[in-house]
Amino acid sequence: MTDHDEAATVRPLTLAWVNRHLEVGERIVRTVALHGGITAEMRRLTIGGRDGGTRDLVLRTFVDVEHAEDWLNREAGTLTLLTETGVPAPGLVAVDATAAHCEYPSLLMTHLAGRTVLGDEGLDTRVPLLARQLVAIHALRPAERPREYVALTTADTVVTPRGADAAAWAAAIDVIRGPAPPYEGRFLHRDFHPGNVLFDDVVSPSPAGPRIAGVVDWVQTSWGPADLDVAHCSTNLALLHGPAWGLRFAEAYEEAGGELASVVSERLYWQVRDPLAFSEEVQWVAQSWREAGRAELTTRAVEERLDAYVTTLMDALG
């Protein structure tokens, strides 16, 4: 087994657990750490077979994460559910949510071809694809609903960036002090954004351009308002590419047939709640994007875009 860096090394108990879930004659021939995540260690395992061929699996490990058992059980259930749908997602191989066999809670799944694309080039083509994919996810109606969504911030935990528009942020914080608006429940990914969407690497001769090859990271699957998923992807796009793209994604979602809150004040509640939640973890988000190749996205740069986006939302919807 070839380890390209220390982060790629699979711990002994986990390695033994993975080996028990391989086919007869298979072995791990290569491990590579996958970067860009915040809460989990991710590794791609190349598996060699007796015939000389290879296949790839992905190992997710949560180290000292409070909700690891819940998240991994939820992801395992969701991956099983998605095999019967048209939503492209990894296949479940095995899960050890309580670390009964591994050093830490872990999940083993199939590897999807494709790559995340976080650069500005081609964004006008990718945004409608992202929107259509999210509409398809929200259209799922499982026999057993996932748990109700959990809000990621409160009015009292928001961290206003230094130098931010104080009036806009105060108004935004006041918006989420009130109760959540009524909503029609939908099946939510709950962490849908460009970093969790894989695009194929095949250059398409069609004018349609690229296609989505997979959607990953289903640990926070929930039931709640479509606006919440849209707001999360919108915020990511605004911070990666500029505030206008946050607004554009909401438009693209509706153009794709998705339905958002019809009352402006209700839409504002969901749209502003997500960037306010980002205020508490800007440093970690910026770091993950730099590791993924966006070196210019320093913590300060992301803070400035976050401020600009909150201000834009309050001007547009407030």
Rank of each mutant, 00 (worst) to 15 (best):
A172V: 08
D174W: 06
D174H: 10
V175E: 02
V175Y: 04
I176C: 06
R177C: 02
R177L: 01
G178F: 04
P179H: 10
P179D: 11
P181D: 08
P182K: 09
G185A: 13
F187V: 08
L188V: 12
H189S: 09
D191Q: 08
F192E: 06
H193E: 08
P194W: 00
P194A: 02
G195L: 04
D200Y: 00
D201P: 07
V202D: 08
V203L: 11
S204G: 02
S204T: 10
S204V: 04
S204D: 06
P205V: 10
A208V: 03
P210L: 01
R211D: 04
A213W: 01
G214Q: 03
V215R: 02
V215F: 01
V215N: 01
V216M: 00
D217F: 04
D217L: 03
D217S: 00
W218N: 00
W218V: 00
W218L: 03
Q220Y: 08
Q220I: 07
T221N: 02
T221Y: 01
S222A: 15
W223G: 08
P225G: 09
D227P: 14
V230P: 01
A231R: 10
H232C: 03
H232K: 14
S234G: 00
T235R: 06
N236V: 07
L239H: 07
H241E: 00
P243W: 04
A244D: 09
G246S: 04
R248D: 09
E251I: 12
Y253R: 12
E254M: 06
E255V: 11
E255W: 03
E255A: 08
G258H: 05
G258P: 06
G258Y: 05
G258F: 02
E259S: 12
E259Q: 14
L260D: 09
L260V: 13
L260H: 12
A261T: 15
A261D: 12
V263M: 07
V263R: 15
V263K: 14
V264Q: 15
S265N: 11
R267P: 10
R267S: 07
R267D: 07
R267H: 12
Y269E: 07
V272D: 00
V272M: 02
R273S: 13
R273Q: 15
D274W: 07
D274I: 15
L276P: 06
L276Y: 08
A277E: 04
S279F: 11
E280M: 09
E280Q: 12
E281W: 09
Q283L: 05
W284V: 14
W284G: 14
V285T: 13
V285I: 14
V285G: 01
A286F: 10
Q287M: 06
S288E: 04
E291C: 07
E291V: 10
A292L: 09
